[in-house]
Amino acid sequence: MDLKLDHHNEDRLTIVEVEGEIDVYTAPRLRELLIDLVNKGNFHLLVNMEKVDFLDSTGLGVLVGGLKRVRAHDGSLELVCTQERILKIFRITGLTKVFGIYASVDEAKEAHGKDK
């Protein structure tokens, strides 16, 4: 399955909807979107990965790159993910300590609201 990307803003948060496979072939499109959002002043990103079928280390690299960019503007990049097959790669690589990972968009929004 190819990669589908969409995004919308809710208050100060930009929610990025990702669907499909994030790998060495498709990850550059996600990278471009994250760079574009940051360049346009969106510094608080929430990436919804609930419809992601596959994620490899190339995709992790793109997410880490996005995190570095938003942090340069005192921003945040957090994830919504409950799929064990995707969470496993975050655990193996230790990136669960780097990203905020939430069970739902609402849960992330609530946590983000408290941080304001």
């Binding site: 280390s57 690299g61 793109v62 880490v64 995190l67 230790g94 780097v98």
Partner: peptide, 18 residues
Amino acid sequence: LDLGMLSDSFMSGFGIAV
């Protein structure tokens, strides 16, 4: 793991770790 040393292209050695 140090976020400062990670980059978009860090996957080369990281892939083997995975």
